[in-house]
Amino acid sequence: MVAGLGLRRSGRRNVLFFAGAAAIVLWSAGPFLWQLSTSFQLDRALVSPTPSLIPHPFILQHYLNIFSVKHFQFYVLNSCIVAAATTSLCLGLGAAAAYALARLKLRRRFGLLGLILSVSMFPQIAIVGPLYLLASSLGLLDTYVVLVIIYLALGLPLVIWVLFGYFQTIPEELDEAARIDGAGPLRILLLVIVPLSVPCLVTTGLIAFIAAWNEFMFALAMTSTIAHQTVPVGIANFTNLYYVPWGDIAAASVVVTLPLVLLVLFFQRRIIEGLTQGAVKE
């Protein structure tokens, strides 16, 4: 329907299309595949004059290194804790706020929504200084709590925006029916809206999780020991004194990226819908 122009596609056009599609896939996945291959290669093979995509010999040394020498598992654990806590709080608070904005009689709801969204657009470096001083005076430096508090606020605007859009597609008659049965807003949210929004909540949660998992600057500023540093800080600090351990870095990259890539590939359709909703609507 949309592809009106492509109805009579000639053979040559088809070839062009596949070439273009192949170029996009190569562009998007190529560098990561090279990283994957690097992680299985000997340091010696990596500096040879002719690089090879197929690891030969195939080794797991770099993976052993990052866990046994560099204690990468601690960073991964920290990141899991912080990102999981952030995601659940984001979804809880975000769902409440999105429901209030989407359904309840609230004056200037679009003004409020705009205000919430605009918060996510200022340069984050502008808040890191005052937040550091505040966290320091509250004794929260180098804790999970401070990271979760910050990531929650950074993640909420997008979560609210995506959930707001989804909640508006749920027929309003459903909560009116529950209201007539005597349910208050909180019960309607929990018993009517949330069960109907599970797919959207899962993907929104995934988006929030990825954002928290990937955040670097605040983690760098607020944490200082391996007890609370997250994966990006760990990887950024992956340097040896005399040479760059590209193989180890590649192995760590694969460990932290592969789960995300698999999740994203699995949920791709919904993630794209959620992320592009703003562009389509207005």
Partner: peptide, 27 residues
Amino acid sequence: EWFPGRGLVRAAMLIPWAMPTVVTSKM
């Protein structure tokens, strides 16, 4: 335009987005 395998291409395009920027940097 529709072509066979378009979903796959769209999925691959999310890889750079999902990758931590620090990892992108090192890569």
